[in-house]
Write a protein that binds this DNA or RNA. Structure first.
Length: 481
RNA sequence: GGUGACAUAGCCAAGUGGUAAGGCAAGAGUCUGCAAAACUCUCAUUCCCCGGUUCAAAUCCGGGUGUCACCUCCA
């Protein structure tokens, strides 16, 4: 497969350290609040990537961290810990908050059909390992103590800016009001590995360490968790684009300095979900969650479809109109699949032909938009329904839209309609409610008498009850919607 | 100020040098008393702009412009 690699700025053939096996790491959520649908876009695309890798025959070991400590609102030893902020907002302990939002995160993932990673590791569960790594970096001379904190010395590296061509001189520090430069730092981009001194005194979670009681910096957790569960050679690291600098840059600095050899050659960055005025963000206050979509009557999987229609490396603009567009497309797709008749033999030649095409587009930098198009191509293909259903089921192992399941449910719903009444060649089919059958028949009588006002009145009355009439060739059918 | 990504119809988009896929929306038709649903058809001489290379450019090169992101915590 070919994947765009943000470390080299090129599309490259995907390679693994151990043939056939992918060591994959994905940055997980900071569990101080609900994930918004912009956050979830990344997890959806990573999920599709993981599923495609498995589909393509790789064995995948996917690791994800849960940031439940040490995530400052700023890198400059300033501001508040996000976890603590969340806890204070809700009058709960930090650990209660972490558990609550971790559960909420995975509940959202489930609704979006995002597979839980093979390993999920909360940062607070690995403190001794963090300390060991920080000690190692100090021993090797890559870190220094200043003002009570341990910092990573970026000047010790030959190449620190791996994702872009920053010139240290040009980096703006404290761009935003209220962020002060940390004067303990020797270089502009040095970052904290371990805090013992913080400007806020009531940090809830603290651990003893060789440098005093404190807590880890944000970046160390990902390096350390990956090292523990993926081993010394990581194949693929994923995350949102905003993490490329400084978070991923710092991870590389730490990991390679500690290990003494190259660490992860391939980086997969997902672009943001934007609103009309820039990216969706928690710091802006209002944000959309999966629950909110559900409250508004949206199927979370329609949002997944919305994301798949676009490419992961392209900013996607969220508007309700765009989502409605996706909902219509998703529902039509399901309705068309529901119209296919299950059973019968699969035409192997046709199956392989279409499968190869799907494989090719998905293997081309995860072209999900073309992957979705492949579904429509199958529907239009000149082959039998059994083959079409088999292909759709096969593609959906990667796309994760639960197409067969939804189509089967729809088919079942349609089957509930049973012949209820036939009079004078006019057949009313419905879900088995004689009262409604009678009304539909009354409407027919009114139509026959050219009393269209009455006929429309009955249609409106049924609609108010949530019953939809569909006129057919020789009668009418109704269903509850 | 620096760095990076992106720019194709009303919207989401494919396209990786050979003459603009697909989906949604819209319009027309069939059906219908009308509507809905369904089905059929239509819908970019042109790909942000200006140059260049080439028999041939949305695709390659140079120069602009615009949008977004990162340099603060964010997916």
């Amino acid at each position: 497969m070919y994947l765009y690699n943000s470390a080299t700025h090129k599309k490259e053939e995907f390679q693994t350290h151990t043939p056939g096996r992918v060591e994959m790491y994905t940055c997980g959520p900071t569990v101080y609040h609900f994930a918004h649908i912009g956050n979830l876009r990344s997890y959806i695309m990573e999920d599709v990537l993981e599923k495609y890798l498995r589909y393509a025959g790789y064995e995948v070991n996917r690791v994800m961290n849960i940031t439940d400590v040490g995530h400052l609102t700023s890198d400059a030893d300033e501001g508040e810990d996000k976890m603590l902020k969340g806890a204070r907002r809700e009058h709960k302990t930090v650990m209660e908050i972490a558990q609550y939002y971790t559960d909420a995160f995975f509940a959202d993932c489930k609704k979006l059909n995002i597979k839980t990673p093979d390993v999920v590791q909360p940062a607070t569960g690995l403190i001794p390992e963090f300390i060991q790594m920080v000690s190692g970096l100090l021993d090797k001379g890559y870190a220094y103590l200043a003002g009570g904190n341990v910092y990573f010395d970026t000047s010790k590296l030959e190449r620190y800016y791996v994702f872009n061509d920053h010139d240290e001189e040009d980096l703006a520090v404290g761009v935003r009001e209220g962020v002060e430069e940390d004067t303990n730092k020797r270089n502009k981009n040095d970052f904290v590995l371990w805090f013992t001194k913080s400007k806020f005194e009531d940090q809830a979670l603290k651990w003893d360490s060789p440098w005093g009681v404190g807590y880890p910096g944000w970046h160390i957790e990902c390096s350390c968790i990956s090292l523990k569960y993926n081993g010394e050679y990581l194949d693929l690291h994923c995350g949102g684009v905003d993490n490329a600098f400084p978070h991923h840059t710092n991870e590389i600095a730490q990991s390679e300095s500690y290990l003494g050899h190259p660490w992860c050659p391939q980086w997969f960055h997902v672009a943001h979900l934007n609103t009309n005025d820039g990216k969706m963000s928690k710091s802006k206050g209002e944000f959309l969650t999966v629950s909110l979509l559900e409250e508004k009557g949206y199927d979370p999987l329609a949002y997944r479809y919305f994301c798949l229609q676009s490419h992961y490396r392209k900013a996607l603009v969220f508007t309700w109109e765009n989502l409605d567009n996706a909902v219509a497309a998703y529902q039509k797709l399901i309705a068309r699949i529901a119209g296919l008749k299950p059973g019968g033999d699969v035409d192997q030649a046709v199956f392989e032909q279409y499968q190869a095409k799907f494989n090719q587009v998905m293997g081309n930098d995860l072209n999900t938009s073309m992957g979705v198009t492949a579904l429509f191509d199958v529907l239009k293909a000149k082959t039998d329904d059994a083959t079409k259903l088999a292909l759709i089921g096969d593609f959906d192992r990667v796309l994760g839209l639960e197409l067969l399941k939804k189509a089967a449910a729809k088919r079942e719903e349609n089957a509930k309609a049973q012949t209820a009444k036939t009079e004078g060649g006019y057949t009313v089919t419905g879900e088995g409610d004689p009262a409604i059958d009678a009304l539909v028949m009354q409407r027919y009588e009114a139509k026959k008498a050219k009393n269209f006002a009455e006929a429309d009145r009955i249609r409106d009355e049924l609609k108010a009850q949530g019953v939809e009439i569909v006129d057919t060739k020789d009668g009418a059918s109704w269903k509850r919607v």
